[in-house]
Each structure stands twice: as structure tokens, then as C-alpha cells.
Design a protein around this nucleic acid. Structure first.
Length: 576
RNA sequence: GCCUUCGUAGCUCAGCCCGGAUAGAGCAGCGGGUUUCUACCCCGUCGGUCGCAGGUUCGAAUCCUGCCGGAGGCGCCA
């Protein structure tokens, strides 16, 4: 761990425990605008042991535990300790980061097996903005956890089963496979679904066909399954094109559709019955998880079987948990699913706990997220009033980025520009989505997300490109400066160095709450610190050895920028 | 009605989990500076009853309670 703040906590732990009579007591080390860091923990500790906070703070200072790392310690206010780090200490810590391929980020000690459930589009239905959030947030969390050394299993829980497939298959037959395939391969999933739905509404005979087809499907009729597979394949081909555009990790290997759990439900339900957890209620088979009430204040059931005897989606989700725990050996399951499903998932998890399928330390977490809003503050809609197609959003982002680059950097060759526009447009879109607290709704705004100023993707990519540009201008290989010592003479250099060393903590904090926006804030602060450094500390114009020292610091900054953006799923071009 | 969740500057958002010193950014406005760089960047300034009211605390945007306002959920769709 390279973070100087974390080092402080480690060094202070013994003396805090000693004063506290042997029990650990958090020294509460925080960043400070009055010094390099401040220690707040003396106040609550003084209260607990009944002594004077300022005297206790002074006692900690006098103990000398920070002698090697601090050049200045000051007791201030009611009992804060302000810390100024010794330059030699910071430089030594920084030197370790420079030579580390992992940029100071240690592998996690206890490596977990994690299932991340994300994206989850529906077969023969268009992907829309809601899928953007799930896909981008899930993908980023996967990248971070993989980097820490967890065993991560991505699962794309696509909606590939259920009643709608009766009408979809019949519509496929009506159109003929070739026509259907053409439409679907062009990405006209919405059209296909709507046509099928319209027929289902208008035509009695079609309804009848659709119903019989569902029965055939559920009894695994081979001819029907062939048609069903065609639909699923065509949709998957389309999803994969969207994933390629979006630049996410999901592949066919990650598909874990609802259909996959159908055969498991009977067994799972059997186990619920054996454990005596199911009840009969109004003809349906249900479980009453503790703590859930309906609108009348009565216990709220989770329905596992309808009165017609059909399994419900909750049952499928139960089977899914069982599969993840028992077959995949998951210690942790993340469900990157919208907030509206909160109640449903909580009930599923609670039932799993009742059935002992989910028990400590195994955890299931609903990584929920809010909606994407239009400028009017309402759910984002297209002009026609439909939900916005994800693919249109992606294309428009790239087009806008391309136009912007063409206008402002006309020197860039057209073929190069294409790749850069891809990185900038998609990066802007992803960053806009990731940079606000996932729990909250956010307002979608093209101009803001594509701006080169402020907390945006392009600003961060630009900071990276600028550093690359310095090396290009000077015709120096970036790798050539990595052996050089970095001297932190200027305040801006020190601030930048400390930020760089805070990278491991930024990742930890992000994963503590599965909140990618925390890493975004870190990257933005890193880019800001670099801008200040760049403004105040001439690089190429300065004399040796300062010149090489500053080049080395710039190079290290670029490495952290590129890497951290990479964890967000964002590409950092060398030029833009 | 019950449950969950959100409410911070004109706008868009951090900070809340784990209580600390004058509540921070960006955009927009105003005033400077720099231009080793590529569209920039840096500094200053203007701007806030942290939804409201209580409570706990030496100390509350942060914890607790109540209320107000918005969103979502609440039996056989997924």
C-alpha cells in the first residue's frame, strides 16, 4: 500500500490502541486543506478515556511514532493533529509506485469468487438507456475486481424465456426466417416485437397459436426449440454488436439466460416444500419472507407458483441464486439491476436466507441504480415518446465526438480520427453515466458530457493526451524516464504525487460501496492536480535534473490516468 | 395507507456509510494571468436557510425522530 494516509493510519494504530487500553481506536486520518493530512481521532479517544484532547494529541505527537514520515506535526484547534510529510518519505513511497506495474495497487488478500449479474437485455427487444447503466456500471466493477485478483464470473441474465416467446415464434414463422433474420440483424428488434405484439392484440387465431406455442416451448418440443434458438441467436448477434460498440467485456461465454434455470426450478421448489416454507394463498403457492407487508399491512407473499401451477420469475431467481452458490461457488453476488427491482430482490434474498441457501459469509448485493432523465427531468424518451434506443445513443455520441475533433483538430488524419472519435464519444457517454452516484437519477445532456472542461470524460482523456504530447514534442520515450528519481520540490509536485499514491485507496473506497463515481472523482482530481502542476512547473524548459524528474512525474501521471480510465472501461488515446 | 429512496449554489453534481476546523467542484457571470500545450489551462471573485422542525453531541450536511416535497414498489408479467 503506497498511500501515505494509509501509512499514517498503520503507524498510529498501536499508540491509539495503547491509550485506549488495548482496544483498537480509529485514528481517523483525513486529507486536509491546512496541511498534508490531519488526524482527528484524538478527540473521540480523549473523551472515551476521560482526558484532555489537546494534551492527548500532544502525547501522540511526542511519542515519535511519526518521526520518520512527518517533517512537521502541529496540534491545532480542539485537538487535531496536522501532518506535513517529509519529502524523503514521499519520494521513497513514490519510487515504489514508479517501478510497480500495478501502480501501487496490491492484490487483494482474500480473493473472492464473485458473480456479477449485469446488462440483461431481453431477446427480440431493443436495448435502451436502462441497459446502458447496468452494462457500464457492471463492466466497470468487473474490471476493478479482476484487477484486485478476484475470480469474477460475468453473467448476462438475458430475458430469453417466458410467455412472450409464443407470439414471437409465431411471428417469426409468419415472416419466414429469412425476412425475420434480415430485420433483426439490422437491429430492428423493436419493430419485430411491436408487430408481434400488435398481432397478438388484434387477432384471436394468432393468440391461440401463440398460447399453444408457449406450451410446446415449455414442453421442450424440438421443432419449437429450433425456432426459439434462432430468435435467441439473432438477438445475441445484435447484442454483441452493441457490446462491441460500447467496448465492454461481455461475450457469448457470459450468457446465462432465464431459460437456463427452467430445469432447476422444480428441484428448487421441492426443497422449499421439504423445508416447509411454502404456503397456499388464494390458490397460489407462496413463501412469506419476514418483514414484508402489503398495502393492507398483511404479510406480503413471494409467489413461487401461480394458481395455474406455473413457476414465477421469483422462482427463477431463487434457482439462479442456488446455481450461483452451489455450482459456481460464489462468495459474493452482485445484481446490477435498476432500483424498481429492489423489493423483489430483497424478498428473493430473504427467502434464500430462510432456506439457508444464502448464509454468512456469502453475500448477495443489489447494486441498484437510478434512471436516466431528459432535460425536462422526466424519464428520457425519444421524440416519438419511446424509450431511446441504446444503439442510437452510441452512434450519436461517436458522431458528435468526430465532428468536434474534425473541427478543432483538423490536422488529424481522417482514419486516425475515427478511432479517437470512438474512444472520446463512448468514453464521454460512459463517464457521464459512471461519474454520478449510481443510486440517483441523472440528467442526460450531450453538451455537458462532451465538453472538454469540467468533470467529463474528454477532459480526462485530454489530460492524458497532453502528457503524451509533451513527450512527442520532446522526442523522448516515456519509458526512458522511469529510472529517474522524482524530486518533489514544488507544492504542486507534492500534491500530484500524493494524489498518485492515493490510487489504491480510491479503488478500495469504490469497491466498498460498488460506486464507480468514487473512482471517477479520483481520476478527475488527479487530472486537476496535473493541470495545476503543469501550469506552475515548467517541464521541458527546466534544467536537469529537474527536467527529467518532472518528465518522470508526468509519465507516472499518464500511466495512472490511462489505467484508472481503463478500470472505468474508457480508452485513453495518445492524441486527440 | 405501508415500505424504499432522493432533496446541498442559477444549472449539473461531490461530500453523508465512519460526525470535526470557514460546506467543495464544474458550468454559467465578472476580473486577472499563462500560452512549454491541441480544443486548453491556472488564479481570484460572485453565488448556499445543506427541504423544514426537533433531538443526541464539546461539535451535525453527516447520526436519531417527526413533518413537507419528488420518484419507485406493494399477489399470480418479467
Amino acid at each position: 500500500m503506497s498511500d501515505p494516509l494509509a501509512t499514517l493510519s498503520t503507524l498510529l494504530a498501536p499508540i491509539f490502541a495503547e491509550i485506549n487500553g488495548g482496544a483498537p481506536s480509529d485514528p481517523t486520518v483525513r486529507p486536509s486543506d491546512r496541511a498534508d493530512a490531519q488526524i482527528n481521532g484524538a478527540l473521540p479517544l480523549a473523551k472515551r478515556v476521560g482526558s484532555n484532547p489537546r494534551e492527548l494529541a500532544q502525547q501522540i505527537v511526542d511519542s515519535g511514532v511519526l518521526a520518520d514520515v512527518a517533517s512537521e506535526l502541529e496540534v491545532a484547534g480542539p485537538g487535531f493533529i496536522n501532518v506535513t510529510f517529509a519529502a524523503a518519505f514521499l519520494q521513497a513511497q513514490l519510487a515504489e509506485v514508479v517501478t510497480d506495474d500495478r501502480l501501487g495497487v496490491a492484490r487483494a488478500v482474500d480473493t473472492k469468487r464473485v458473480v456479477v449479474d449485469y446488462s440483461a437485455p431481453n431477446v427480440a427487444k431493443e436495448m435502451h438507456v436502462g441497459h446502458l447503466r447496468s452494462t457500464v456500471i457492471g463492466d466497470s466493477l468487473v474490471r476493478m475486481m479482476e484487477f484486485l485478483g478476484y475470480t469474477v464470473m460475468r453473467e448476462n441474465h438475458i430475458g430469453d424465456w417466458g410467455r412472450p416467446f409464443g407470439m414471437l415464434i409465431e411471428h417469426l414463422l409468419d415472416l419466414g426466417e429469412d425476412v425475420a433474420s434480415e430485420g433483426l440483424s439490422q437491429g430492428d428488434l423493436d419493430g419485430f416485437y411491436k408487430e408481434a405484439n400488435a398481432k397478438f392484440k388484434d387477432s384471436e387465431p394468432f393468440q391461440e397459436r401463440a398460447r399453444s406455442r408457449v406450451v410446446l416451448l415449455q414442453s421442450n418440443d424440438e421443432d419449437t426449440l429450433v425456432l426459439w434458438r434462432r430468435l435467441v441467436e439473432m438477438s445475441n448477434a445484435y447484442f454483441n454488436r452493441v457490446y462491441t460498440k460500447l467496448g465492454v467485456l461481455l461475450t457469448d461465454d457470459d450468457l446465462a439466460g432465464e431459460s437456463q434455470y427452467q430445469s432447476l426450478m422444480t428441484g428448487v421448489h421441492q426443497r422449499l416444500e421439504t423445508q416447509g416454507l411454502v404456503r397456499e394463498s388464494d390458490g397460489a403457492t407462496v413463501v412469506f419472507p419476514a418483514g414484508f407487508k402489503n398495502r393492507d399491512g398483511d404479510p406480503l407473499p413471494m409467489i413461487t407458483k401461480s394458481k395455474t401451477g406455473a413457476f414465477m420469475y421469483a422462482t427463477s431467481d431463487l434457482a439462479c441464486v442456488v446455481d450461483r452458490v452451489e455450482r459456481l461457488g460464489a462468495d459474493l453476488m452482485l445484481y446490477v439491476v435498476g432500483t424498481p427491482q429492489a423489493n423483489h430482490l430483497q424478498m428473493v434474498f430473504e427467502v434464500c436466507r430462510m432456506a439457508s441457501w444464502l448464509k454468512e459469509p456469502t453475500q448477495a448485493v443489489h447494486v441498484n441504480f437510478g434512471s436516466v432523465l431528459g432535460a425536462d427531468g422526466k424519464m428520457m424518451r425519444s421524440r416519438a415518446g419511446d424509450s431511446v434506443k441504446l444503439v442510437d445513443l452510441l452512434d450519436e455520441a461517436v458522431e458528435r465526438a468526430d465532428a468536434s475533433i474534425a473541427e478543432k483538430n483538423p490536422n488529424m488524419a481522417a482514419e486516425e480520427r475515427g478511432a479517437v472519435a470512438q474512444a472520446v464519444g463512448i468514453g464521454a457517454l460512459k463517464y457521464a453515466d459512471l461519474s454520478t452516484d449510481r443510486i440517483k437519477d441523472y440528467v442526460f445532456d450531450w453538451d455537458r458530457m462532451l465538453a472538454f472542461e469540467g468533470n467529463t470524460g474528454p477532459y480526462l482523456q485530454y489530460a492524458h493526451a497532453r502528457i503524451c504530447s509533451i513527450f512527442r514534442r520532446a522526442t523522448i520515450e516515456r519509458s526512458a524516464v522511469r529510472d529517474a528519481p522524482i524530486v518533489l520540490g514544488h507544492a504542486a509536485e507534492k500534491a500530484l504525487a500524493m494524489r498518485i499514491m492515493g490510487y489504491p485507496s480510491a479503488i478500495d473506497n469504490t469497491l466498498d460501496s460498488y460506486s464507480p463515481h468514487k473512482l471517477c472523482t479520483y481520476v478527475y482530481e488527479l487530472a486537476s492536480d496535473f493541470s495545476s502542476f503543469y501550469q506552475e512547473c515548467p517541464i521541458l524548459k527546466s534544467d536537469e535534473p529537474m527536467r527529467t524528474s518532472r518528465l518522470a512525474l508526468a509519465d507516472l501521471t499518464a500511466r495512472v490516468l490511462e489505467h484508472s480510465l481503463g478500470l472505468l472501461g474508457i480508452v485513453a488515446p495518445e492524441e486527440m
